[in-house]
Protein backbone atom coordinates (compact mmCIF):
# COMPACT_ATOMS: atom_id res chain seq x y z
CA UNK A 1 0.00 0.00 0.00
CA UNK A 2 1.41 3.39 -1.00
CA UNK A 3 -0.37 4.95 1.97
CA UNK A 4 2.07 3.09 4.27
CA UNK A 5 5.19 4.49 2.65
CA UNK A 6 4.16 8.00 1.53
CA UNK A 7 3.15 10.90 3.73
CA UNK A 8 2.06 14.51 3.30
CA UNK A 9 4.97 16.74 2.34
CA UNK A 10 6.81 14.03 0.41
CA UNK A 11 7.86 14.93 -3.11
CA UNK A 12 7.46 12.73 -6.15
CA UNK A 13 10.26 12.01 -8.58
CA UNK A 14 10.17 14.97 -11.00
CA UNK A 15 9.62 14.37 -14.69
CA UNK A 16 11.45 16.20 -17.48
CA UNK A 17 9.68 15.81 -20.81
CA UNK A 18 10.64 17.44 -24.08
CA UNK A 19 7.51 18.48 -25.96
CA UNK A 20 8.50 17.80 -29.53
CA UNK A 21 6.93 19.01 -32.75
CA UNK A 22 5.90 15.40 -33.34
CA UNK A 23 3.96 15.34 -30.05
CA UNK A 24 2.21 18.62 -30.91
CA UNK A 25 1.35 17.31 -34.38
CA UNK A 26 0.02 14.10 -32.86
CA UNK A 27 -2.04 16.02 -30.29
CA UNK A 28 -3.44 18.21 -33.06
CA UNK A 29 -4.52 15.09 -34.91
CA UNK A 30 -6.02 13.33 -31.91
CA UNK A 31 -7.83 16.44 -30.64
CA UNK A 32 -8.75 18.04 -33.96
CA UNK A 33 -7.21 21.32 -32.72
CA UNK A 34 -5.23 22.74 -35.62
CA UNK A 35 -5.03 26.33 -34.40
CA UNK A 36 -1.99 27.70 -36.31
CA UNK A 37 -0.46 29.16 -33.12
CA UNK A 38 0.57 25.55 -32.35
CA UNK A 39 2.13 24.90 -35.74
CA UNK A 40 3.46 28.17 -37.20
CA UNK A 41 5.78 30.66 -35.54
CA UNK A 42 4.32 33.50 -37.61
CA UNK A 43 0.76 32.83 -36.41
CA UNK A 44 1.96 32.56 -32.79
CA UNK A 45 3.90 35.84 -33.04
CA UNK A 46 0.82 37.59 -34.43
CA UNK A 47 -0.93 36.61 -31.19
CA UNK A 48 1.93 37.94 -29.05
CA UNK A 49 3.82 34.70 -28.31
CA UNK A 50 7.59 34.47 -28.93
CA UNK A 51 7.16 31.30 -31.06
CA UNK A 52 4.67 28.50 -31.65
CA UNK A 53 3.22 27.12 -28.43
CA UNK A 54 1.91 23.72 -27.37
CA UNK A 55 -1.77 23.09 -26.67
CA UNK A 56 -2.60 23.88 -23.03
CA UNK A 57 -4.43 20.58 -22.82
CA UNK A 58 -1.32 18.77 -24.02
CA UNK A 59 0.60 20.12 -21.02
CA UNK A 60 -2.26 18.93 -18.79
CA UNK A 61 -2.11 15.50 -20.44
CA UNK A 62 1.67 15.29 -19.99
CA UNK A 63 1.58 16.50 -16.38
CA UNK A 64 -0.75 13.65 -15.38
CA UNK A 65 2.16 11.29 -16.05
CA UNK A 66 3.49 12.13 -12.61
CA UNK A 67 0.74 10.11 -10.89
CA UNK A 68 1.37 7.04 -13.06
CA UNK A 69 2.97 5.10 -10.13
CA UNK A 70 -0.27 5.60 -8.15
CA UNK A 71 -2.42 4.42 -11.06
CA UNK A 72 -0.29 1.28 -11.31
CA UNK A 73 -1.03 0.67 -7.61
CA UNK A 74 -4.79 0.70 -8.05
CA UNK A 75 -5.66 4.38 -7.63
CA UNK A 76 -7.87 6.32 -10.05
CA UNK A 77 -8.26 10.03 -10.67
CA UNK A 78 -11.27 11.50 -8.90
CA UNK A 79 -10.50 15.08 -9.90
CA UNK A 80 -7.80 16.95 -11.76
CA UNK A 81 -7.53 20.72 -12.04
CA UNK A 82 -5.03 23.01 -13.68
CA UNK A 83 -4.52 26.76 -13.81
CA UNK A 84 -2.60 27.79 -16.90
CA UNK A 85 -0.14 30.62 -16.15
CA UNK A 86 2.18 30.80 -19.17
CA UNK A 87 2.58 29.07 -22.53
CA UNK A 88 5.05 26.29 -23.33
CA UNK A 89 7.00 26.77 -26.54
CA UNK A 90 7.19 23.84 -28.94
CA UNK A 91 10.50 22.02 -28.44
CA UNK A 92 10.94 23.04 -24.80
CA UNK A 93 11.47 20.57 -21.99
CA UNK A 94 8.94 20.91 -19.21
CA UNK A 95 9.52 19.84 -15.64
CA UNK A 96 6.69 18.38 -13.63
CA UNK A 97 7.06 18.37 -9.86
CA UNK A 98 4.60 16.88 -7.41
CA UNK A 99 4.19 17.19 -3.66
CA UNK A 100 1.86 15.05 -1.57
CA UNK A 101 -0.67 17.48 -0.07
CA UNK A 102 -2.50 14.79 1.89
CA UNK A 103 -2.33 11.04 2.16
CA UNK A 104 -5.23 9.07 3.63
CA UNK A 105 -5.85 5.36 3.69
CA UNK A 106 -7.92 5.42 0.50
CA UNK A 107 -7.11 8.74 -1.10
CA UNK A 108 -4.23 11.03 -1.92
CA UNK A 109 -4.05 14.64 -2.99
CA UNK A 110 -1.06 15.86 -4.98
CA UNK A 111 -0.03 19.43 -5.78
CA UNK A 112 1.75 19.79 -9.09
CA UNK A 113 3.84 22.57 -10.58
CA UNK A 114 4.79 22.61 -14.25
CA UNK A 115 7.74 24.78 -15.33
CA UNK A 116 9.73 25.33 -18.50
CA UNK A 117 13.08 26.81 -19.48
CA UNK A 118 11.31 30.08 -20.34
CA UNK A 119 8.78 30.33 -17.51
CA UNK A 120 9.28 29.22 -13.88
CA UNK A 121 5.58 28.50 -13.53
CA UNK A 122 3.69 27.33 -16.60
CA UNK A 123 0.83 25.79 -14.66
CA UNK A 124 -0.33 24.87 -11.16
CA UNK A 125 -2.36 21.77 -10.66
CA UNK A 126 -3.98 19.48 -8.12
CA UNK A 127 -4.94 15.83 -8.54
CA UNK A 128 -7.16 13.91 -6.15
CA UNK A 129 -6.74 10.13 -6.30
CA UNK A 130 -8.95 7.44 -4.81
CA UNK A 131 -8.29 3.75 -4.38
CA UNK A 132 -10.33 1.97 -7.05
CA UNK A 133 -12.82 -0.56 -5.71
Amino acid sequence: MLSDSIKAGDTLKPLHIEVTEQMVKKYGEVSGDFNPIHFEDRAAKEKGFPAKIIHGMLSMAIASNIVEPFLQEGYWVKSYEMKFRAPVLVGETITIEGTIASMEKESASIDIVVSSQTYPQVAKSKILLHVYK
Binding site: E29, V30, I62, N65, E68, L71
Partner: peptide, 13 residues
Protein backbone atom coordinates in the same frame (compact mmCIF):
# COMPACT_ATOMS: atom_id res chain seq x y z
CA UNK B 1 -2.87 8.04 -30.22
CA UNK B 2 -3.41 10.15 -27.10
CA UNK B 3 -0.75 8.17 -25.18
CA UNK B 4 1.70 8.81 -27.99
CA UNK B 5 1.01 12.56 -28.09
CA UNK B 6 1.33 12.96 -24.32
CA UNK B 7 4.33 10.65 -23.84
CA UNK B 8 2.27 8.35 -21.62
CA UNK B 9 3.62 4.77 -21.42
CA UNK B 10 1.53 2.19 -23.22
CA UNK B 11 1.33 0.02 -20.13
CA UNK B 12 -0.60 2.80 -18.42
CA UNK B 13 -3.62 2.28 -16.18
Amino acid sequence: AYYEAASIPNNAS
